[in-house]
């Protein structure tokens, strides 16, 4: 069946580069549509983009390396806090702030990977939780640096390109975020299709065979942790720049768990799935949780159970399956 899929894919689909350009165009189009349709909700949409970056980074670890993590917000929060602190200390150029956030996320990713890769399975999951909780407590305790439970506020990033200010309407913040998302997404497409990305997939599918090929898994996975940290840190820095507040919730178990739920909803191991899941989850949360937070929890719980039972590959995976089924049936009918 796998062979058939590959053959049909090779025959019917356009080249990968063209497909990526198409995908990027679709994302840009969707983003611009959001800009035009919901001009009053741009702050929410910017937050959505920053969380989408977090979910993308989680997908790199969960979907491409097969390492379950419930602590991804540690990387996101590290980026957010570092960018926020840098901004308060006089570095106000937004591009530089994003780079600082990404670097902080990458450093934290290095640390987190080094700790998490010592264990496998459940202990690994527990380590990820313990790490994010530890950072949470540290951020709470170091209130002279992070503002503690009040959060970090008062950042004033410089205008974008020296012209477009980050104002109350959040137009420049949103377009800045959309641009960031497009760049990161394009880079990640290249990363996951590179030999390195393939190696990570191999390690996920069959670690024994890869190690029999003479490859030592630890540095490969660690590298992915660093890349993932940079992406999550970028998302955190974007949140810090756009909202000009960094709270303790940016480095919390809840955010990590929500990110995992979004990823699973969209489909693990698809970059597009990560985006789709984030958009659906956050849009629903925006509507339902505002009405009644407990109904929202029941709904999320029911959706999770349904996904595990009926659609283990998430929405995008199910769509793929459906499409595969249809084309196969079509092929049979043709024969």
């Amino acid at each position: 069946m796998a062979e058939a899929t590959i053959r049909s894919a090779a025959a019917s689909r356009p080249g990968p580069l063209l497909r990526d350009l198409l995908g990027l165009g679709l994302i840009a189009l969707g983003g611009l549509a959001g800009y035009l349709l919901f001009p009053d909700n741009l702050a929410f949409l910017t937050r959505l983009i920053s969380v989408a970056l977090l979910v993308l980074s989680l997908d790199l670890i969960v979907g491409y390396c097969g390492i379950a993590s419930l602590g991804q917000a540690a990387l996101y929060g590290a980026g957010a806090y570092t960018a926020g602190i840098a901004c308060l200390n006089g570095v106000t150029e937004p591009f530089l702030l994003v780079l600082i956030g990404a670097a902080a996320g990458a450093m934290t990713g290095l640390l987190m990977g080094a700790v998490m890769l010592r264990a496998h399975g459940l202990p690994q999951l527990v380590l990820s939780i313990a790490l994010v909780q530890l950072l949470h407590e540290a951020a709470n305790k170091a209130s002279w640096l992070t503002g503690g439970s009040d959060g970090l506020s008062g950042m004033v990033p410089a205008p974008l390109f020296g012209v477009f200010e980050f104002d109350l309407w959040g137009r420049s913040a949103y377009l800045f975020g959309l641009g960031l998302l497009l760049v990161v997404f394009a880079v990640l497409r290249l990363v996951v299709r590179s030999p390195f990305g393939m190696l990570c997939r191999g390690l996920k599918e069959d670690p024994l065979r890869i190690s029999a090929l003479g490859i030592y898994a630890f540095p490969v996975l660690l590298k992915m942790f660093v890349i993932s940290g940079a992406v999550a840190g970028t998302g955190g820095a974007l949140a810090a720049i756009a909202t000009q507040v960094v709270g303790l919730d940016s480095v919390s178990f809840e955010l990590s768990a929500n990110a995992l739920v979004m990823l699973v909803l969209g489909g693990i191991g698809h970059l597009y799935g990560a985006l789709v899941g984030t958009v659906i989850f956050m849009a629903l949360e925006h509507v339902v949780a505002a009405a009644n937070p407990f109904h929202w929890m029941t709904l999320v719980g029911a959706v999770l159970i349904a996904i595990v039972l009926f659609a283990p590959r998430g929405l995008s995976g199910s769509l793929d399956q459906l499409a595969g089924l249809l084309t196969r049936q079509g092929g049979r009918a043709g024969r």
Partner: peptide, 13 residues
Amino acid sequence: VLMTIGITFCVIG
């Protein structure tokens, strides 16, 4: 993990 987190959310709600 996902299924049981889902059950937890439902129970809380």
